[in-house]
Design a protein around this nucleic acid. Structure first.
Lengths: 151, 151
DNA sequence: CGGGATCCCTGCGGATACTG
DNA sequence: CAGTATCCGCAGGGATCCCG
């Protein structure tokens, strides 16, 4: 997603003019050739924070601050961006209570709950195979060193 | 992955000195606070091209050029980087045949085949719910426009 | 053919300051 | 509290050239 097809940002110096503080309609009309469906999923749940949000919302709804505290590596901006994106995709529902200290709650939609299962599958796979991957990496890093073929 | 903890790249002008043509040991010792396991999976299969490689290698082995032609949006560099990464993780196996025109074949390892199932789950989920997501997006983009609260 | 090495642009995402 | 608005570093990744 967000391929440089016709974004046509006004380039000024060393910064794009469309600095996208909070992007509204970022998705492009699919200029990719191959089956970009998978790309979309990854772009969605793999946006670095979406998984945490989805996982955190497992069952109970949460407020903005709660999510921020729970995920705790995330910045306000990225939490907002992620929540907006997930809301736009119909994966979470945002409820605003018009009270004096603003109260906003987020919860998974039925669709989001089905995605949670996929995410859980991924997390489960990781838990089971992380050791193998680590071992494979160690083995790989003990590379025989190409040996310049002197002679 | 690749969090800016202690990478300590020599910063020269507007470009990093460690231009990372082909990174060797990019993974960091987990400086994240939350359960970064999920992040690792996403970082792995969500590296924009890994899914295509994994999916393409479903069952039959493939040569470098075959993969490049199949995935077709990918650059040589990214295909190489992705293949190296997956090989290091023990997800694919690289076989070099010492013949005059070099012949290199890639195939999923047993571990990689288990990941393929996870990827398939994701792709399947996408196929089933893309319409819903699209509808949700359209609905969201027909936003009631916040109404500046005149008066 | 299968990459390795370089150069360079872009956009992701962090930090910070300000509003209702 | 729950955002919005800006600024900007930096790594991801494409284009290109070259090599065994």
């Amino acid at each position: 997603m967000s391929l440089p097809t016709d974004t046509a940002d006004v380039y000024v110096g060393n910064s794009t003019f469309s600095d996208l503080s909070l992007p509204d309609i970022p998705d492009q009309p699919v200029p990719m050739t191959t089956n970009c469906k998978a790309r979309e999923v990854v772009g969605r749940i793999g946006s670095k924070w979406a998984i945490y949000v989805i996982s955190s919302l497992d069952e109970h709804t949460m407020r903005f601050g709660d999510l921020k505290k729970t995920i705790d590596g995330i910045s306000q901006r990225m939490l907002t961006v992620t929540l907006r994106s997930l809301e736009r995709d119909g994966l979470i529902r945002r409820t605003v209570y018009p009270v004096v200290p603003p109260r906003v709650e987020y919860a998974l939609t039925p669709l989001g709950r089905t995605l949670l299962e996929v995410v859980s599958t991924m997390v489960h796979w990781t838990d089971e195979h992380m050791a193998e991957i680590g071992a494979a990496q160690s083995a790989y890093d003990s590379r025989p060193e190409p040996e310049p073929i002197e002679q």
